[in-house]
Write a protein that binds this DNA or RNA. Structure first.
Length: 243
DNA sequence: GTACATCGCCAAATTACGTCA
DNA sequence: GGTGACGTAATTTGGCGATGT
């Protein structure tokens, strides 16, 4: 792995979401908006919830000054109603604020995974269809996709992290090697005072054997002799000219 | 044209439940 | 049977773009 490999890793922060980010701006956002109430059909549950449970969402309505929360108030009620209806269907005897966690069946997980492979984000129609197919609430499908995207991104981040660690180790080794080589060259320079008075340009180093070449009557014998004329290494025409 | 309100969707962070060793 | 770790469903929060007025 060379420096270019390190620099051209193609790594992007949030790499794992690149595709989904593109997708998320495609079908449901670019297309003219037709707002679909995904909780339609749960009005009965809402009524049920309103009867069965004390008003619990007043706190969240005061928890933030944002107007948006007022809208969420109703969706909270809807989802709380979902919970109530789930509990009823599950014959749960817990209190109204209990949070029951659903475990998806293998078939449901498999189908969701399959769908996720095709597109990591869903438009409302796809969500509805998938929810019907899986016998889940659209909100559950939506949540599953959100969590799935998060897991994918986390996994990709871990992979990226490992890769960068390896790059770091490689560069550290390379740096160590070059430092050592520099020390050796410095020591060589001290041991051969003759070179101290030579212009650096007259010294050459063989790129393959990493020996210093040079000129002189013993040039053909000694690796430390001087080159007869400036010697430019061309890996294509002369892979080991100094040797 | 633009300022504003509203909506729906999303990511990120967090909570909490179910399972397993 | 109690417990901690782990996976993951569900919730909360805040940002953003689209849309309507």
């Amino acid at each position: 792995m060379d420096f270019n490999d390190v620099c051209n890793t193609g790594l992007v922060l949030g790499l794992g979401l690149t595709a989904s980010a593109q997708e998320s701006s495609s079908p449901s956002k670019v297309a003219p908006r037709k707002i679909i109430d995904v909780n339609k059909g749960y009005e009965e549950s809402i009524d049920l919830y309103r009867q069965a449970s004390p008003p619990h969402s007043a706190v969240s309505s005061f928890s933030s000054g944002r107007v948006k929360r007022e809208r969420d108030l109703s969706s909270e009620e809807v989802e709380a109603a979902d919970r109530v209806s789930s509990r009823i269907s599950d014959e749960d005897e817990d209190g109204p604020n209990a949070r029951k966690k659903l475990r998806l069946t293998k078939e449901q997980s498999a189908l969701l995974e399959e769908s996720f492979k095709q597109h990591s984000t869903l438009n409302p129609k796809q969500k509805q269809a998938l929810a019907r197919q899986l016998n889940l609430r659209p909100r559950q499908v939506e949540v599953w996709f959100q969590n799935r995207r998060a897991r994918t991104k986390l996994k990709q981040t871990e992979v990226d992290c490992e890769f960068l660690k390896k790059c770091c180790e490689t560069l550290t080794d390379e740096n160590r090697r070059l430092q050592k080589e520099l020390q050796e060259l410095k020591a060589l320079k001290l041991a051969q005072p003759l070179y101290m008075h030579m212009p650096a340009a007259t010294l050459t180093m063989c790129p393959s054997c990493e020996r210093i070449g040079g000129v002189g009557e013993n040039a053909s014998k000694s690796p430390f002799s001087m080159a007869p004329k400036p010697h430019f290494y061309n890996p294509f025409t002369n892979p080991s000219a100094a040797c």
